[in-house]
Nucleic acid binder design. Sequence first.
DNA 1: ATATAATATGAATATCTAATCACCTTTTGT
DNA 2: ACAAAAGGTGATTAGATATTCATATTATAT
Lengths: 203, 203
Amino acid sequence: MLEVSTSMPKTKKGLHTFNKICMSAEKLFHEKTYHAATINDIVNDANLGVGTFYIYFDSKRSLYRHLVLSYYHDIRKSIAEKTKDCKTRLECEKIGLRTFLDYVIKKPHAYTIIWQSLLVDRELFVDYYTSFAERYKKQLDESIEKGEVNPEIDTIALAYALMGISNFVGLETIFFHTDVLDEKRIDQIVDSVIIMLEKGIGN
Amino acid sequence: MLEVSTSMPKTKKGLHTFNKICMSAEKLFHEKTYHAATINDIVNDANLGVGTFYIYFDSKRSLYRHLVLSYYHDIRKSIAEKTKDCKTRLECEKIGLRTFLDYVIKKPHAYTIIWQSLLVDRELFVDYYTSFAERYKKQLDESIEKGEVNPEIDTIALAYALMGISNFVGLETIFFHTDVLDEKRIDQIVDSVIIMLEKGIGN
DNA sequence: ATATAATATGAATATCTAATCACCTTTTGT
DNA sequence: ACAAAAGGTGATTAGATATTCATATTATAT
């Protein structure tokens, strides 16, 4: 499923070059999209020869997979760490959403690059979201055991609904909202979602 | 913003050819993605010459735009019609979600083609979702007036959250769920979401 | 010090594809 | 019936791009 196939560099210099390629690719896949950003664009941006690229990656697609998998692990790790000490399901959701939004505000390219997987590598697209959803579902099932979540709710449907909320609220936050993003606005968004999860949308 | 630029055909025969192009493009953009599906693929599938394509569309991208805009109007129209007689906000959300799911089950290619807009035409991507969200927000604001929605909730955040729920629940329903899709399963998904919107996720 | 492994290069290759255009056929209105 | 408008064609063009490879430099371990 979600595995890395790249053979990592063996010296500090190699690692530095590897990272330069990743950073340039991140920037260009985000700005120009995967198909429009060429290997030449990437190595020019990184001040390297074309051949150097193929020392570190088998293909353009394997570089792309490497980026998506690293975002997957980063996002999961951040959320797991931050929600470690949460006492309730709702607190988990609040800190989880906040962590996700902070991550995509800091790294908006991660957002667009993951989104592109439907076009670049459909297997990766499916694996990415199903892996995320399965882990989420397990947590929700545990919360049902603890009596924190209504057992009438189907946890797979709920997992996707919650992922959808994070992703689309993130979409608005990063791409569509033209005003400056202050802490207050993000708090307001998170609070609105948590009210909904706590009491529903009504009065 | 969301406008069509295609000059429509002037005879029944022309309309028939136009529709054949659209149907083949829909199929191939869905199966192979926008970039991998060539104009040749499309006209071969439709049993037409390459030149014929350029009678009806300025470019590959203008065909793509035409498809996305037609989905936008279809989806909006379906939801507006079906929710016309709904008495409460919650009933609106229930019928709206059900209508959206029925639409994407019937036309799964619409789903993947819209998703691709981030890569194919970023302006269209932004217009598509912001237009949808603005209309949604207006309805939610009206519901606050009527006392049906908690005024503490930010309606723009809520609009995106609700769009995210539909889209990601749809994702699971169409792409990731391998079992057969029976009516019961869809009802269960819709009911789970509505419980959440009515009472929150807890007990 | 030197052999070996790792890293770096960019011109050349082989393949692909959106769009054009000059010419042909069919349909429509009068 | 017939001109004009609409529809249809596919070989050709012009440009692009992922990957290879022979060769060169640099780093590492003994």
